[in-house]
C-alpha cells in the first residue's frame, strides 16, 4: 500500500499541516519506508483475535454528577494567543 504524493497532500490536509512541494516529496519517501516496514504485520495470523481496547484489566471509573469545576474564565484564556472579553478570538469562520 504505497503512498503517493497526492495521498501525502490529502493526509496533510486532514492533519492541518501545510507542506511544500519539496516536503511532500520527502515525506512521501519517509512514509513509504515506514509503511513498508510495518507491512511485516501481515505475517501475523490475527484471525479471531480481539483488538486491544485497554491494556489494564479494570472497569471504568465514573464520577458523580456534581458541578465542581469551571467558572474560571481567566484560567481558560490565560494562554490564549488572542482573546476578547473572555472569548477566544480566531480568523473569521465561514460556514
Amino acid at each position: 500500500m504505497a503512498v503517493d504524493e497526492a495521498t501525502v497532500r490529502r493526509i496533510a490536509k486532514l492533519a492541518r499541516i501545510s507542506v511544500s512541494d519539496d516536503q511532500a516529496h520527502a515525506i512521501e519517501g519517509e512514509l513509504n519506508t515506514i509503511l513498508d516496514w510495518v507491512e511485516q504485520l501481515n505475517e501475523v495470523n490475527v484471525e479471531g483475535v480481539e483488538p486491544m481496547t485497554s491494556v489494564v484489566e479494570m472497569s471504568m471509573k465514573m464520577r458523580d454528577d456534581e458541578v465542581a469545576d469551571g467558572e474560571c474564565p481567566e484560567k481558560v484564556i490565560a494562554n490564549a494567543p488572542a482573546n476578547e472579553e473572555h472569548f477566544y478570538l480566531v480568523p473569521k469562520v465561514v460556514e
Binding site: 458541578v67 469545576d69 469551571g70 474560571c72 474564565p73 472569548f87
Partner: peptide, 23 residues
C-alpha cells in the same frame, strides 16, 4: 445533568463567555 459528560463544569444555559468551562 448538572455537570458535563466528561468534566465537572456546569451545564447551565447561557452564562458569561467561557464561564462554564473547565480546563
Amino acid at each position: 445533568s448538572k455537570s458535563k459528560l466528561f468534566s465537572a463544569s456546569s451545564t447551565s444555559f447561557g452564562g458569561e463567555p467561557n464561564d462554564h468551562v473547565s480546563l
